[in-house]
């Protein structure tokens, strides 16, 4: 997995792609604290989380990762074992 900084809020995550459609994101901190979008969703959607809203991801982060892949800054990889959520 490779470190990526969200272009919108600067949050660092580890990201990986096996293909254009596939994306893995390993968060390194409490996502609902560091990502303004998820934080906002959590506050607004606590009641909904029981039903579905918990499945939402941050579109800005995913756009960042897709763009990095398109620009060749995040090369496609083969399936890997899980990465610990702590930067070495």
């Amino acid at each position: 997995m490779q470190k990526i900084l969200c272009t919108q809020c600067g949050t660092a995550v580890l990201a990986e792609k096996y293909s254009e459609q596939h994306t893995s994101v390993q968060w390194l901190d409490d996502a609902f604290e560091v990502c303004p979008r998820l934080k906002q969703d959590k506050v607004a959607g606590d009641a909904l989380r029981a039903q579905r809203a918990i499945g939402a991801v941050c579109p800005a982060l995913h756009a960042t990762i897709d763009q990095a892949a398109q620009e060749g800054n995040l090369p496609l990889s083969l399936r890997s074992e899980p990465t610990a959520g702590v930067l070495q």
Binding site: E20, Q21, H22, T23, V25
Partner: peptide, 29 residues
């Protein structure tokens, strides 16, 4: 399974990688 393991260890042995958010979009194309 890394996530699931948090329920089978003592609280003090729950590591960050078991509970930190992880997202995975499977490519079904």
């Amino acid at each position: 399974r890394r996530w699931y393991k948090q329920f089978y260890v003592d609280r003090e042995d729950v590591s960050e990688d078991m509970v930190r958010r992880f997202e995975f979009d499977v490519d079904v194309t």
